[in-house]
Design a protein around this nucleic acid. Structure first.
Length: 576
DNA sequence: GAACACAGCG
DNA sequence: ACGCTGTGTTCT
């Protein structure tokens, strides 16, 4: 039977202290009832203590606050526990999350404590007691045993994960000497970053995003009125529901005579790509407008429903994509239509500081494959789209027209995905450029002849996929991936390195804030963009620190290419 | 209830 | 073509 000490009074805390004071980190779990922490289980290498905060009261909280302020904690899905601990102003010195560790070691499986315990310890965990009543006056023996077992399992997992993370080949040239690294003896840079990042995500979820409710209502009414008008008019003229893809397909092909492609299931395809080609057709234009209005309204309504006071509190999945990117839900605040972002407004007396990396994926590509010509263009501060255009059009950069630059933009981005000539024709069209297949072919050829390292990289990946049916690799920080198709294989390292860069930037920004004792809160992260809310008086300094952090992170992740960062201070999250 | 289509963001 | 989430329609 598992041994543990159940601590229900303040005079026993001294014993806990004596037992655990020498440990650099502790294993921790909490049980929560009605949003209040009932139990905090803490364990060292040997003993397990269960602190009952309902019984011990304020002194227990104070004890944890002091005791944990210079200790690391190890737990499973610590975002949950941290959000509760922070409310009591308990902030541990460093964090190691066994759920994140499991995700870093293999992204395909489930990562609940139950699944992970089964996989790595062959231990069957009964989680049925998790949902038991943790608020009742006297907890049952089974409940306490369950609580103790959770930390024990986490402890067993930790030593396995620490070893596995440190022994997986990783970048030796990137040495992150952070508290996370020191406390847990972690050497794997990706793990060091992800573990520390857990605290950032927990804080960000607690802060939420500030909404200008009046502005939200105003825009909602506007858009609803507009949509109603448009839909009524559409139905009365065409006897067709513009919301039904099936009916729309019929209308466009049978009655308007458009020649639209079909989906695999035989339906007429009416998606944006298809309709973009016929945007000149008034009916199609109308349709696109209706769809976009509808989307806007849905988004606004979702935000309205989820308002608590004048903020929304979205959830963030720290590793939401295989590449290491985050994902957001409830609501998704990473896909708010750009022209609606103005509804997010800093609370009175505060302002937003918004920073984003410019053309970051292209910079990453050039650094990743060490493409000399592209790197030099970046080093000289050139506009890469203009530069690329001048290469395949064979004329000086000053003579590149707006349209030609657009085309080069399509080419530059297309290359990341290993685009075909046919693909380039289609892709260029979404940038408003018409190409023949022959032109596309010749552009592609001159592009790859000029940027020959990119061609070599693509060839190498194709070869790998042929020979081994998979392509394994790692991002610039050392995040491992396995890809099974060509587009995945060329995308993962680039998108993944972008995720590395953003996460490291946030951590370095936090470190700067701590140094200067300035308070500023992270409120959103959108792949290459950081949104912070702070006091108006601090905004100037915060923007400097954010810029500094992002540039320093760039120097760590990229070997040669400089990053460019745009920072703005304004009360709303929109373009000017 | 699952699968698909569509649309928003990077 | 890459990565995501949310909503509504259509299919089984």
């Amino acid at each position: 039977m598992l041994k543990y000490s159940y601590i229900t009074s303040a005079d026993k805390l001294q014993r806990v202290y004596q037992n655990l004071k020498e440990e650099k980190f502790l294993f921790l779990d909490t049980e929560v009832s009605n949003n209040q922490i009932r139990l905090v289980q803490i364990a060292g290498k040997e003993d397990i203590f269960i602190l009952d905060l309902f019984d011990i009261g304020q002194e227990g909280v104070l004890f944890l606050k002091n005791f944990l302020s210079d200790k690391g904690i190890v737990g499973h899905n610590l975002k949950f526990d941290l959000k509760h601990l922070y409310r009591y102003h308990i902030e541990p010195y460093a964090v190691f999350d066994t759920m994140i560790a499991s995700q870093l070691l293999g992204n395909s499986e489930r990562h609940s404590l139950q699944s992970v315990a089964m996989k790595y310890l062959r231990e069957v965990l009964d989680k049925s007691l998790q949902a038991s009543d943790w608020g009742q006056p006297f907890l049952g023996k089974e409940q306490l045993e369950y609580a103790a077992l959770d930390v024990k399992v986490v402890r067993d997992l930790f030593y396995i994960f620490l070893q596995k993370l440190n022994e997986t080949p990783h970048k030796e040239e990137i040495l992150l000497k952070t508290r996370t690294a020191r406390v847990f003896d972690l050497t794997n840079p990706v793990a060091i970053v992800e573990m520390a990042f857990v605290q950032e995500v927990a804080k960000m979820e607690m802060k939420g995003l500030p909404v200008d409710r009046e502005e939200l209502e105003k825009r909602l009414k506007e858009q609803e009125k507009e949509l109603q008008k448009k839909v009524m008019s559409f139905i009365s003229r065409y006897r067709t529901d513009p919301m039904s893809p099936k009916q729309v397909g019929e209308l466009l092909t049978r009655r308007l005579g458009l020649d639209l492609p079909r989906t695999e299931k035989g339906n007429v395809s009416t998606d944006d790509k298809v309709l973009a080609e016929y945007a000149y057709h008034p009916t199609v234009a109308e349709l696109l407008e209706i769809r976009s209005l509808k989307k806007n309204i849905e988004k606004l309504q979702e935000i309205k429903e989820k308002l608590k006071g004048s903020r929304i509190y979205p959830e963030f999945k720290q590793i939401g994509a295989v590449t290491g990117r985050m994902a957001s839900t409830n609501p998704n605040v990473q896909n708010i239509p750009r022209h609606l972002r103005g509804i997010f407004k800093a609370e009175p007396g505060k302002t937003l500081v918004i920073a984003d990396f410019s053309q970051i994926e292209l910079r990453i590509v050039s650094d990743y494959v060490n493409e000399e010509k592209m790197i030099n263009a970046f080093l000289q501060g050139k506009d890469l789209h203009r530069y690329t255009a001048s290469i395949f059009l064979g004329k000086p950069e000053e003579e590149i027209s707006k349209e030609e630059r657009q085309l080069a933009k399509a080419v530059n981005f297309g290359l990341i995905y290993g685009i075909s000539a046919k693909g380039l024709v289609e892709y260029a069209r979404t940038y408003g450029v018409d190409l023949t297949l022959e032109t596309a072919q010749s552009i592609r050829e001159s592009f790859f002849s000029y940027y020959s390292t990119i061609r070599a990289w693509h060839e190498r990946v194709k070869r790998e996929l042929k020979d081994y049916k998979e392509s394994r690799g790692h991002t610039l920080l050392g995040r491992h991936y396995v890809a099974h198709t060509f587009p995945d294989a060329v995308n993962y390292p680039i998108q993944g390195s972008g995720a590395d860069l953003l996460k490291l930037s946030v951590l370095m920004f936090d470190a700067e804030l701590k140094k200067e004792k300035i308070e500023a809160n992270l409120i959103n992260l959108v792949h290459d963009e950081i949104v912070v809310e702070c006091e108006e008086k601090d905004a100037e300094r915060v923007s400097q620190l954010l810029l500094k952090a992002m540039k320093s992170a760039g120097k760590i992740i990229l070997k040669r290419v400089p990053v460019e960062v745009e920072v703005t201070i304004k009360e709303r999250w929109d373009k000017d």
